[in-house]
C-alpha cells in the first residue's frame, strides 16, 4: 500500500535556513545541508527546500546547497522558489534535485509547465499553488509569496496544470499559512476531488492532528510542514508514530 508522505520544508535565504531547527546537536543551525541530513536520518519521506532569496545574484547559492545535500541525503529532494526558466530547472536537476516546484512562472504562462514536463518528465514537475479564499468554496490563486492577486480560480488552475503535465500539486492556503490553526481542509478536499494527480498539503500546521486532517479529511497524498519540525516541537518520527496510531499508513 502506498504510504502517506511527511515532507519537512526548509526555507532558505541567501544560503541560510530561516526559522531553522533548534536542536542542540546542531553545530550550525543555519546550515541547510546539516538540517536536511537530520530530517533525512529522522525518517523524512522527502525534503523540500524553498529558496526565498530575493536577489538574482544569489541564485548560485541554492544550487551549491542542493549539490551538497544530494550527496548526503538519499531521499527525494524538491526545490522551489524562483524557478522561471528551463535553464533554472536544468541547473537544479544537474545539481541533484529530483523535483522542482514552479509557482509564479506557471501562473504567468501555463505552457511553461507543459514545456518543462515534456522535457524533464512529469515526475519532476511540481506546481505550487498559493490559494486564498474569496467566498464559500471559492479560492483565488496568488503569486509572489501571496502578495499578488491574479483573479484566477484555484480549482480551474489546478485542473489546467494537471492537463499540462504537472506531476504533483503543492497546495498552500494563504489564509492558513503561518497561523498554526490547521490546513484549509475544504480547499484541500475540493482540489483533491477535482484532480487526479497527488496533492501535497501545505500551510497552517500547528499540531500532529492537523497532519491527520490533511490526509484523512482533505485527501492529500503528502503533508508538508515547516515550523512544527523546525522548532523541535515534534520530530518526524513523532508525526509518523502519531499518524500510524490513528491508522494512517506511513513509512515507519
Amino acid at each position: 500500500m502506498l504510504k502517506n508522505r511527511i515532507i519537512p520544508c526548509l526555507d532558505v535565504k541567501d544560503g541560510r535556513v530561516v526559522k531553522g531547527i533548534n536542536f542542540v546537536e546542531l553545530k550550525d543551525a543555519g546550515d541547510p545541508v546539516e538540517q536536511a541530513k537530520i530530517y533525512s536520518d529522522g525518517g523524512a519521506d522527502e525534503i523540500c527546500f524553498l529558496d526565498i532569496t530575493a536577489s538574482n545574484e544569489n541564485r548560485e547559492t541554492i544550487i551549491d546547497i542542493v549539490r551538497k545535500t544530494a550527496k548526503e541525503c538519499f531521499v527525494p529532494l524538491t526545490v522551489g522558489g524562483g524557478v522561471r526558466t528551463i535553464q533554472n530547472i536544468t541547473d537544479l536537476l544537474l545539481a541533484g534535485a529530483d523535483k522542482v516546484s514552479i509557482n509564479t512562472a506557471a501562473v504567468k504562462n501555463v505552457d511553461f509547465v507543459k514545456e518543462a514536463s515534456k522535457k524533464f518528465g512529469s515526475q519532476c514537475i511540481v506546481v505550487a499553488i498559493d490559494a486564498k479564499k474569496v467566498s464559500d468554496n471559492k479560492w483565488e490563486v496568488f503569486t509572489h509569496g501571496g502578495r499578488n492577486k491574479t483573479g484566477i480560480d484555484a480549482i480551474e488552475f489546478a485542473k489546467k496544470v494537471e492537463e499540462n503535465g504537472a506531476g504533483e500539486i503543492l497546495l498552500t492556503s494563504m489564509d492558513k499559512d503561518g497561523t498554526k490553526s490547521g490546513y484549509d481542509v475544504n480547499l484541500l478536499k475540493t482540489i483533491t476531488n477535482n484532480t487526479n494527480i497527488p496533492v501535497i498539503a501545505s500551510g497552517g500546521v500547528g499540531t500532529l492532528d492537523h497532519l491527520y486532517d490533511g490526509i484523512v479529511k482533505g485527501g492529500a497524498s503528502a503533508v508538508l510542514a515547516a515550523s512544527i519540525f523546525h522548532y523541535g516541537e515534534y520530530k518526524i518520527k513523532d508525526a509518523k508514530e502519531y499518524l500510524n496510531s490513528k491508522n494512517v499508513s506511513v513509512r515507519l
Partner: peptide
C-alpha cells in the same frame, strides 16, 4: 489502471 480515478497517477511515494 487508475480504476476511474480511484488511484492517483503518477504513483508517487513510498510503497512496500
Amino acid at each position: 489502471d487508475n480504476q476511474k480515478g480511484k488511484f492517483k497517477l503518477p504513483h508517487i511515494g513510498w510503497n512496500e
